[in-house]
Simulated assay, not measured.
Amino acid sequence: MRFHTRKWVKPEDLNPNRALFGGRLLQWIDEEIALYAIIQLEIPRTVTKYMSEIDFVSSAKEGDIIEIGIEVVSFGNSSITLKSEVRNKLTRKTIIEIDKIVMVSLDEDGKPVKHGKTKIEYVSDRLKDE
């Protein structure tokens, strides 16, 4: 799994227990997954369709740094399925794992559209085509 993004847990990210608010963490995960999917599929109208069970196994506190990891599971005709792990960079403890996140590419009318991708592309792959 590649860890693409780091976030610093600030006071505005905390719940009443002074730990990282789960809703904020899910917002960060959803945004990071969306950006990743849009870049991979090259279709800006790519949206979250499904997220599997969410189980918080540990937390983070103010001042901690967390990392969001993403791994591609599979490509569909109009979708990409990914998984994500978030861990505390300082303690190395896993905070949450999401086994299945499905992102779907849409056309201007909001209908699923084929993206034509079958494998992960890296910047170096795309530069070879130019």
Rank of each mutant, 00 (worst) to 15 (best):
N77P: 02
K93Q: 15
F3R: 05
I54A: 04
T91N: 08
I43C: 11
T46L: 04
L106T: 03
I70L: 09
E85T: 12
V9N: 06
P112M: 04
G22P: 05
K119T: 11
T48K: 01
I101S: 01
I65E: 15
R87K: 15
G63V: 08
S58W: 01
E31F: 09
E71T: 13
F56C: 03
Q27A: 13
Y36T: 03
E42L: 09
W28I: 05
L127W: 01
L82A: 04
F75N: 06
L14C: 02
K10M: 14
K89R: 14
K7G: 07
D55Y: 11
M1L: 10
P112L: 00
I66T: 08
G22R: 07
V123E: 14
S52F: 01
L41F: 00
I54W: 03
I70M: 07
I95D: 05
E85D: 11
L25C: 07
D64I: 07
G22E: 05
L90P: 08
K89T: 12
P11D: 11
D125M: 04
V47Q: 09
G110H: 01
L106N: 04
E71W: 06
I80N: 06
T46H: 04
Y36L: 02
R6F: 03
S52N: 11
I43F: 04
L90E: 13
E67N: 14
I80H: 07
N77K: 15
I68A: 01
F75Q: 03
R18S: 14
I66F: 00
F75K: 08
K89D: 15
Y36A: 04
G22K: 06
I95S: 05
K114Y: 11
M103T: 10
T118N: 14
P11Y: 10
V113S: 09
S52V: 05
G23D: 05
I101K: 04
I120G: 03
K117I: 10
V113R: 13
D13I: 01
L41M: 06
I29E: 04
L14K: 03
D64L: 00
V123P: 06
M103D: 08
G110W: 01
L82H: 08
T81Q: 12
I29Q: 00
K89F: 13
S79D: 03
I54Q: 08
W8N: 15
R18T: 14
S105W: 06
I70F: 06
M103V: 09
K119I: 07
R2E: 13
V73T: 10
S58H: 06
D125G: 02
N77H: 14
E130Y: 13
N88M: 05
T118I: 13
G116D: 02
D13G: 05
V47H: 08
A37P: 00
